[in-house]
Design a binder for these strands. Sequence first.
DNA 1: GAGTGGTCTAGACCACGGT
DNA 2: CCGTGGTCTAGACCACTCC
Lengths: 243, 243
Amino acid sequence: MPKKLYSDIYDTLKQEINKQVYQPRNTLPGEEELASRFDVTRNTVRRALKELQSDGLVYAVKGRGVVVLEPIRDDRVIFQAENKEGFEALRNFPQNKFIQRLATDVLTFEEVEIDEELEKLTSFNSGDIAYYIERLRLFDGKALAVDNSYFRKNLLGDMNREDAENSIYEYIRENSLFKIAAERSTTTVESATKRDLQVLDVGDMNCVGALTKFVYTDTGRLFEHTQTRYVPNHFSMVDFKSF
Amino acid sequence: MPKKLYSDIYDTLKQEINKQVYQPRNTLPGEEELASRFDVTRNTVRRALKELQSDGLVYAVKGRGVVVLEPIRDDRVIFQAENKEGFEALRNFPQNKFIQRLATDVLTFEEVEIDEELEKLTSFNSGDIAYYIERLRLFDGKALAVDNSYFRKNLLGDMNREDAENSIYEYIRENSLFKIAAERSTTTVESATKRDLQVLDVGDMNCVGALTKFVYTDTGRLFEHTQTRYVPNHFSMVDFKSF
DNA sequence: GAGTGGTCTAGACCACGGT
DNA sequence: CCGTGGTCTAGACCACTCC
């Protein structure tokens, strides 16, 4: 029962590329031809193709056609699911073989008032009340990451430590507080702090990866600032750009 | 002289957002209204809006409108331009204050045949001939990054060390060999290798950031594999996702 | 119910690549 | 030249949010 035509077409073509019906370095059938095959307009086909392109599966060349790109192998992908729902989502990620080997430990749960220093860090407004939550992420019992999160309290309402132990996004959904609209993140490598050495199993390493994330609600309000600090050699993030 | 309507609209709206004509947490005028203002169809306006959204400037909510997101401040952005054209492009990046403090040193330039081990690393085909180029990236005389690159020779033709010392993308353009279509990259943090310690000014650090990049031509052929290894605390990469 | 963005159609013309 | 993808128009109907 097709609800969105373009997304059905996207799924179909994606499968066919995976099954090598269309092979790397060959072109897909023309947009016109695909349009008549799926019995839709060219525009709708184009939309599906655009999605495939932003996945990094194909690339369109004017005058030549839509080219299937050669695939890449990568093993260590974990962080790829580190979108939107945070670490907790990794456990439910279908393609994730690591389910049940992940665990979370809430180290700190407290309310803080945003002062000037925190304002710079979080981009929250000075004077706001925020929850500060420090969560340790365990993989096979090893402490591989810490999340340092600030959530605006006036958007979350009264929350307790148990809510933080489960998925906070679950909590938001259940109480239907608001919707997540978007997130901006920056990735860096930094020296390990004393706290990092205390809580993380960094071994001999003296630095960590840092993923700093700002999350917005659908009214355009910044409501979460999280910095995930993770030990080297265990995470990777993937990206695709087309020109 | 407007060539692409949607991109003019995009530019105009972007400016107006920066000038706070439309302020954070407020909505833009409706799509219909914008369409009549710019004298185009709603579709064309939507296209411009979509671009603004993928920049992370606005977010569209069905039934409410297009919301302007609160901005984020980030200083250390260098790697943001690390798209497509590689390190050399940073020097020409207009918003980059670091021009002329960057330099490149070609450490290694040689031809190699892809064996099984290199096939795994680069995704090139076994038996191919490739240029292996190791370039040191200096900032104020400090060695902050090394690029380990493989380029398929049959796509590049005969290239010499001087070409590598300048921008290789420049070389491709000048000889109009082909066009760059897309790139896939993965970001990780890894233990520093002996080579890293040898060539990079890592100081006390014993790990590095690694950006592994696969670059495709417009015929869908993989032609470059580059791993950039960089010292901590000097680089950041930004990303935006909307849901 | 009025207004918003989301999806889709059925056309048109253009720029580009390959013959 | 023909076929490709890129841009754009002028409509339509739907789903959603807010009052």
